[in-house]
Design a protein around this nucleic acid. Structure first.
Lengths: 217, 217
DNA sequence: TGTACATCAGTGAACGCGCGTTCACTGATGTAC
DNA sequence: TGTACATCAGTGAACGCGCGTTCACTGATGTAC
């Protein structure tokens, strides 16, 4: 994942070996620190130990590199959510559906707080709502955060927690709530809030969404 | 409000007359078009018809200008909310409190959609939670969006719609939900959604928040 | 009312910076025969 | 197995750009007497 893991340019070699990956990894490191604006093509080549324009053998321009970095960041969000989902224990279907739904929100916010730069990067370009972004293959999650949320809501519907009208548009409403807290926790006034209080807020928000969507009225 | 309203530099005059305001207005115009990153000091002076470094008679640096632009953008959000609040009709206190609460959310999202650049600018610097930002005096709203939301929640509490525990942290939870939809509607995947559908979503979201906070459980 | 002078609010030119990108080039690699 | 050659993936130098900021300066304004 880190630039070091793939290695800088093996010293003395004229051909890098895997410059494309090295550039993307460098881009991810920059994004981690400073968000999408911090992804600078020249700096990426510097970190890879290579001349500035070598990047153009692998990317059409800076935006193409950034795009790939963003896609990778999105996968990282998805992995955080999946990690949270994996912890939901077996239980009655309806309870389980509900628990999984909450886990999606918690995983999302957890990631935003742990990796604010990557989080902002993940949503720098509008997320593709339907198709998964893995052409990358091995190691990458096949699902994006939005799909994980949609699936969770489908399960709630299947479990009878949501009727047809409540289900309609629910992903957008739920996503909004969770995304908003994530953003405010990163760059808004909640930035300075102690972690424990933010945990409470996360729980409270996710519970509110659950209740607001679920209770008929 | 617009640069034209204050006027460019009165031609031929050595002293501008009100350069500070002209620069802020120019900054607001840039922010309106391209968000906070688009607020460029040199361009502001160009628009005011003045040499680049004349700005330094009025602002310490670019950030100082941007800061003032952001404050003004925040006031604009507050005004949008107040416009929405003004339309809430007289009715039983509890109903009215609820209607006013919803109006805050609707006004917030309405502004974000109408002026995405200014909206992003308004929250570029973390909003000051407690104090109102009007040193500006005349014409500026004395309240910021967060205060308007807090007041609405206080009214709901007074009307008996919220108990003590539900009230605690409610502004953050409510704000998150509304802010999230605003952001997704501007720069996220909801960007391309037809206006009517976004209106529905806004209603649905605000109703969800109301219900989620309000119903005891 | 008139003048001297301090202060204020501009000018004009220049600085260094780091960026993305393009050019003509060359060393390394791998494939056909 | 050995060699010729096309292709690939780098080099090194340079470009123009627009930015924020600083310098020494001057024209305009307003106040004290």
């Amino acid at each position: 994942m880190t630039s070091a893991a793939v290695g800088g340019k093996p010293s003395g070699r004229y051909h890098h070996g895997d410059l494309r990956h090295a550039l993307v990894d460098a881009g991810l490191d920059m994004a981690r620190t400073g968000g999408p604006e911090a992804v600078v093509l020249r700096e990426a080549t510097r970190r890879a130990g290579v001349t500035a324009n070598a990047a153009y053998r692998h990317f059409a321009d800076r935006e193409a590199l950034l795009h790939e970095v963003c896609t990778r960041a999105q996968s990282a969000v998805a992995r955080s959510i999946e990690a949270e989902l994996a912890q939901v224990r077996e239980q009655a279907p309806a309870d389980r559906a509900r628990a999984r739904f909450r886990a999606v929100g918690v995983g999302y916010i957890r990631f935003a707080r742990a990796e604010p730069g990557l989080f902002r990067t993940a949503f720098f370009f509008p997320v593709d709502l339907r198709r998964s972004q893995s052409e990358e293959g091995a190691g990458e999650s096949g699902r994006n955060p939005f799909q994980l949320l949609s699936d969770a809501l489908d399960d709630m519907r299947a479990a009878g927690l949501l009727d047809e009208t409540a289900r309609r548009g629910a992903e957008f409403v739920a996503w909004s709530a969770v995304h908003g807290l994530a953003i405010l926790a990163i760059s808004g006034p909640l930035r300075a809030m102690p972690a424990a209080r933010l945990d409470d807020l996360t729980t409270k928000l996710v519970a509110m969404v659950d209740k607001g969507l679920t209770s008929s009225g």
